[in-house]
Amino acid sequence: MYPFNLRKLKDLLFLVITGILSLLMIIPLLHIIFTVFVEGIGVIIRVGPIFVTGTLSDGGIGPAIAGTFILTFLASIIGIPIAFAVGVYAYEYPDSIIGRATTALLEIMLEFPTILVGLFVTQIIVIPMGTYSAIAGAFSLAIILMPYVAVYTKEAMSQIPFTFREAAFGLGISKIKTVFLIIAPIAKRGILTGLLISIAKVAGETAPLLFTAGGLYQSYPQGITNPVGAIPLLIYTLVQSPSPSDHAMAWGASLVLLLIFLGVFIPLRLSIKEVKL
């Protein structure tokens, strides 16, 4: 009986260890959320509504919030139409050489170090323009946004049963109408969710903005060819400051960013089966 009990013991130990390690995996997230709340809520309460509307000298992060929205909006305008077309292409030609290359490229871009995108945009936009700008930051984010949107579009459309295509083609409807007016609307929900998740993802990006957006926290953004700030970028700057009051601001800004992210992400995540991040 002895070795047999040992096996049972191993089995139990296995359950305990995998359980503990799984718990250990999610503890950091719980701790992060907890810490950001605890550290961030103080400064927000102390400063009051000014925290989300005022400039940095008022003790607020208003321009950064505005910047994040501007950058995300511009990035979406630039990136989504192109990405959508690419996604539709990859859906339509999954087996052709270009189609397969496109899918591969999208997957590579999805995993690509984002700092490299930032430096690239600096070289092609910031340096020729002679200034950091919202448009440079937005273009940088758009490049990161594109593969997500394209992959989500492709996958949402691939979920649609093939018979819809056959039906459409059988009625003599052209390919472009079939794809854009029949398949895409059927896959609308998946595509939209994918879009929003992708946007939520890039809204939190920092590295691609480092040398493109420039940062602007003492006044609200002036226009798309001028520098803008962003919440993640501001946090990055404030964390590196030696001053404790800047650190408090950083926590406050983190709480705002976290709330925006969770507020967008959780409802979206609950509405679909799986995500690609």
Partner: peptide
């Protein structure tokens, strides 16, 4: 629940990991 938590971790803005990393 566990899967959603994992997805949140994957999507969480990296700067939030950064500030938590630096200060905690």
């Amino acid at each position: 629940f566990m899967i959603i938590v994992s997805d949140i971790m994957a999507g969480l803005p990296t700067i939030i990991y950064g500030i938590w990393g630096a200060f905690f």
